[in-house]
Design a protein around this nucleic acid. Structure first.
Length: 415
DNA sequence: ATTGCCGGGGG
DNA sequence: CCCCCGGCAAT
């Protein structure tokens, strides 16, 4: 954080003191105290200008670099975490009787919503040889202090290629590969996975994904034909639930960050723009998943929404399909009937341009406009864009606009 | 925890 | 007026 670049030099030869904080005032319009040092020439002006821009640049760079620096650190700690988690899981699975066979799907990467591809053949008895969950190898080297680079601490021993390259939509897979996240993270055996239809007043529960998909397709969606064809729409209408002891509440990871309430007026039921599903996946797995999976092991009845779009919007199902795992508050439901999205869930095309543009909520405030107008507060809604403080930072306080310096509403960056 | 800024206070 | 800060609310 040293501001030892041009400005220091400049200041040194142009003026007297150098206090750490007041390095920057140089170019301010209001007080021309730099003028005394030398007759103001274009050169100096130029200097000032460039210096100022350098300041800004510098700051930008600081930001960038910090954001670059961070990830590795976090990563390593994450890896350690993962190790712990895996170890824990291994232990758990060892101590638990391998009663139930391994579930047909990998529960964790489900957010992509297309794991069904990975599962492949819809066989009800897919006990699956090749998911063999290489626990021993994990255990054999539990320490793994620091795997070089982004090594996958989860599957040390064997490559264990992802099931099937299959076809397109496999974003989850792709993202996993991209992010070097521990891909398979298979579930332990002692867990029964069921699939529950979320359709209004249906609540049918089947034991296989294919089954439930077929059910939805035929019964609810009214698809004809033998319907091998699935556009993935069914994914929205069922969810995976786990019954059983098996502690580790990983399924909740994806559900947790749901905000408890959302007005129906909101135009898009999906606060999260689908476009960045990959990121979401990764994030969910890493930062949300991990901490959560360790907490709250008490549930016996877990709901696992495989699809981000399913889980994320705080929807509410009217009648049925309401899970209350422990009595603790948790419910999935569905307020706006399936009509909301037809065909393809959410077009992955609409990216929101982050960073540059401001996207406003743009609500259509219906009729409720003026509450009690007489009240005092009337606080400004809070400015949107960055303000002087944010832009220049505390250390360059004298670059702020006056209002900002006085802690008043910013005048330079008005909204 | 950080940031925007209102309300109020001292000169 | 100018200048500053306590403290609150939103993030």
């Amino acid at each position: 954080m040293t501001f030892t670049f041009q400005s220091e030099d400049l200041k040194r030869d142009s003026s007297k003191r150098m206090s750490h904080q007041h390095v920057f005032p140089l170019a301010m319009e209001e007080d021309g105290r730099t003028a005394d040092a030398k007759p103001p020439h274009r050169a100096l002006d130029h200097d000032k200008e460039s210096t100022r821009s350098v300041c800004l640049l510098e700051q930008k760079r600081k930001v960038v670099s910090s954001s670059i620096d961070v990830p590795p650190a976090r990563k390593s700690s994450e890896e350690l975490d993962m190790d712990k988690v895996t170890a824990a899981m291994v232990l758990t699975s060892l101590s638990t009787s391998p009663l139930v066979r391994s579930p047909p799907v990998r529960p964790n990467d489900g957010l992509g919503g297309s794991w069904k591809e990975a599962v492949g053949v819809p066989s009800s008895t897919s006990s699956s040889g090749y998911w063999s969950w290489s626990a021993p190898s994990d255990q054999s080297n539990p320490s793994t202090p620091s795997p070089p680079l982004s090594a996958d601490s989860c599957k040390p021993g064997r490559p264990q290629a992802p099931p099937l390259p299959d076809d397109g939509i496999d974003e989850a897979e792709a993202s996993n590969l991209l992010f070097d996240e521990p891909i398979p993270r298979k579930r332990k055996n002692s867990m029964k996975v069921m699939f529950k239809c979320l359709w209004k007043n249906c609540g049918k529960v089947l034991s296989t994904a294919a089954g439930i998909q077929k059910h939805i397709r035929t019964i609810h969606l009214g698809r004809v034909g033998d319907s091998d064809y699935s556009d993935g729409e069914e994914d929205f209408y069922y969810t995976e639930i786990k019954l059983n002891t098996d502690s580790v509440a990983d399924g909740l990871g994806s559900l947790a960050p749901v905000s408890p309430s959302q007005s129906m007026a909101s135009p898009s039921p999906f606060p999260i723009p689908e476009s960045s599903r990959a990121e979401i996946c990764a994030k969910t797995e890493t930062k949300l998943m991990t901490p959560l999976s360790r907490s709250a092991p008490t549930t016996l009845y877990l709901v696992h929404a495989d699809h981000a779009y399913q889980a994320t919007p705080p929807v509410t199902i009217p009648g049925s399909a309401k899970f209350t795992p422990n009595g603790s508050s948790f419910s999935i439901s569905w307020q706006s009937p399936p009509v909301t999205f037809t065909g393809i869930p959410v077009s992955p095309t609409h990216n929101h341009l982050m960073g540059a543009g401001e996207q406003r909520p743009q609500h259509t405030h219906t009729v409720l406009s003026s509450p009690p107008r007489g009240t005092v507060s009337l606080r400004k809604p809070r400015g949107e864009g960055k303000k002087c403080r944010k832009v220049y930072g505390m250390e360059n306080r004298d670059m702020w606009c006056t209002a900002c310096r006085w802690k008043k509403a910013c005048q330079r960056f008005t909204d």
